[in-house]
Amino acid sequence: MQTHAPRKAAPAARSAEPPRWHVALRLLLAIPLGYGWTALATASLARFLPLPALEATIAATLASFGIYAALIVWIFHAQHPGRAALLMALSAAAMAGPLWISILLEGRL
């Protein structure tokens, strides 16, 4: 937390409030979409962690709340919510593809 020194420009920037829909988009990204993204990340970890299936599933589930919290913090700090949305969409696609193929090919226990 100490690595981010407060930017010098901050007080000036405060007067120019970002548009209202930025907050709305951040909330949308953080709460429902962020949960979906976390679910996808948890599912991927459960499948791809190099551990026995049961262990990988539990480890992924234990980590999921930390992932979700970090994601929310990142969404609210991102420069522009549109950028956060784009990065989330791209990474979600990158996770969903292999996950889908893996379940299709190897099935579930």
């Binding site: 679910a39 948890t42 991927s44 299936a53 599933t57 589930t61 999921s64 709340f65 379940i103 226990l109």
Partner: peptide, 17 residues
């Protein structure tokens, strides 16, 4: 974590039927 399988069941859904 006490109710993790209720809140985040997706790891289980990906691995188990």
């Amino acid at each position: 974590v006490t109710l993790a399988t209720l809140y985040m069941p997706w790891g289980i859904a990906a691995t188990y039927q």
